[in-house]
Computed example of a mutant assay.
Amino acid sequence: MMITRTNPPGLHSTPGYHHVTVVAAGRTAFLAGQCPLDSTGALVGRADVGAQVDQVVANTLAALSSVGAGPEHVVRTVIYVVSADREVLASVWSRLRESPLAVAFTTASTLLGVAQLGFPDQLVELDVTAALP
């Protein structure tokens, strides 16, 4: 399976992701939004965005592994953060880019500040699409 990531001429430079990701037709995994919940369903890191990012990373790695994939197979991410503060958004991006999931964020990626997510006190959610090997 070949994944091609590009930044076409005429588009702005990016802080690590690519504007376009192309994958030959094949098996694709669409992960449910990964939330900062532990294996018992309890929210991790109430009011601690860093702890929530770490749990989301762990959950995403587990979900990818369950289908024989890793961060290198991710072709699209959408990151949701409950904040309108650019510094908070940037801190989430930085923590993700320094995590064991970091390579997943070199692909087509979107970071959004939102008003609310599904669970009380949830601050982060990650939507991932992967091209399976």
Rank of each mutant, 00 (worst) to 15 (best):
V128P: 07
G68V: 01
F105H: 08
I79Q: 09
G50P: 02
V88L: 08
I3D: 05
Y17G: 07
I3A: 07
L112I: 03
V103A: 15
P120N: 00
V56N: 02
A102N: 09
S94E: 11
H12A: 15
D127I: 10
Q34C: 14
T14P: 12
A130M: 05
V53T: 04
A24Q: 13
R95F: 06
V74T: 06
L126N: 03
L112F: 10
I79H: 05
A63D: 13
V78I: 13
R76V: 01
A90V: 01
L111S: 03
V67H: 11
A32I: 05
H19D: 08
S99K: 08
L11S: 12
L37T: 00
P9R: 14
L89V: 02
R95T: 00
G50A: 11
Q34W: 04
G41D: 09
A131T: 00
L112S: 11
A131C: 09
A62D: 09
D121Y: 12
A69F: 00
A51M: 01
A90H: 09
H19F: 11
S99V: 06
V22M: 13
A32P: 13
H19P: 09
T129H: 09
A29Q: 06
V23I: 10
L31N: 03
L126G: 04
P71D: 08
G70C: 06
V114L: 10
P36R: 07
V74R: 03
D54T: 02
T6R: 15
S66G: 11
G118Q: 10
A115L: 12
V128F: 05
P120Y: 02
N7K: 13
A63I: 02
